[in-house]
Every structure is written in C-alpha cells, then in structure tokens.
C-alpha cells in the first residue's frame, strides 16, 4: 500500500521521475514532494513516467496539474509518459488530456527536450 519513486537524470538536464503505485489521497502528497524538489533544482525538463501507476484519483490529477503550473512558471518542460487505460480514463473525464504533453514511450517523451 505504498508508493515508490525512481529518478533518472540525463546529461542534458532532463530528469525522469518513475512512479510505482496508486496515486491517491494517501500517496499524492509524496508525489508532490518529489515534483517540488525536482522543480527547485531547475531541471530543463521533468518527465513523469506513469507506466507503474494503475490508479489515479482527483488528488493525483491535482498534483500533476500543480507540476504543470510549476513548469509554466519555471519555463521548463513537463511531460507525462506511459498512461495506463485507467489513468487515461480519469484524465479524459476531467478533460485534461489536451492540457498535458503525453507520450506513449519514454523515447518519445525524451525527444526534442
């Protein structure tokens, strides 16, 4: 019932945050902390790998919206990759899919940043 994170930074200053576990009211504050510390380091781009996230609720969506807002104010890129059908459904109900840059694979997400 926990959430795990793995970060990987490439030499170009692009960092990938891979999340493993459900993003719900219990775990979203931890995701927020991770994203906040990455934006404080002023990375060129933050890519969130959601392929290990089977479930997301409104608090998880809110956390990613916050990340998007931080990226706008810091003028860094913020991309999402590997959305499962379940996660994509929730973005679609919230009509937020067009608001984010989303990619099927990590290679696609890393291209052009």
């Amino acid at each position: 019932m926990s959430i795990d994170f793995k970060t990987n930074e490439n030499p170009n200053g692009v960092v990938t945050l891979a999340i493993q576990g459900d993003m719900d009211m219990n775990s979203s504050p931890q995701v927020r902390d991770q994203l906040s510390s990455l934006f404080k380091k002023n990375q060129k781009a933050v890519i969130v790998d959601l392929s290990g996230v089977p479930y997301i609720d409104s608090s998880g969506i809110a956390t990613l919206v916050e990340g998007l807002q931080w990226s706008h104010s810091s003028k860094n890129k913020f991309r999402l990759v590997g959305l499962s059908d379940g996660v994509k459904d929730v973005f679609e109900i919230a009509r937020l899919l067009p608001v984010f840059e989303t990619f099927e694979t990590k290679e696609q997400a890393l291209a052009g940043v």
């Binding site: 609720d57 409104s58 608090s59 969506i61 809110a62 956390t63 919206v65 916050e66 998007l68 807002q69 929730v90 109900i93 919230a94 937020l96 608001v99």
Partner: peptide, 11 residues
C-alpha cells in the same frame, strides 16, 4: 478552470 483540486465532486 485548470487548477489543482475540486475535481472529486465533479467525477
């Protein structure tokens, strides 16, 4: 209004 929060009741 794209901002964090307030989506639960909407869902």
């Amino acid at each position: 209004d794209v901002r964090p929060g307030g989506l639960g009741t909407y869902f």
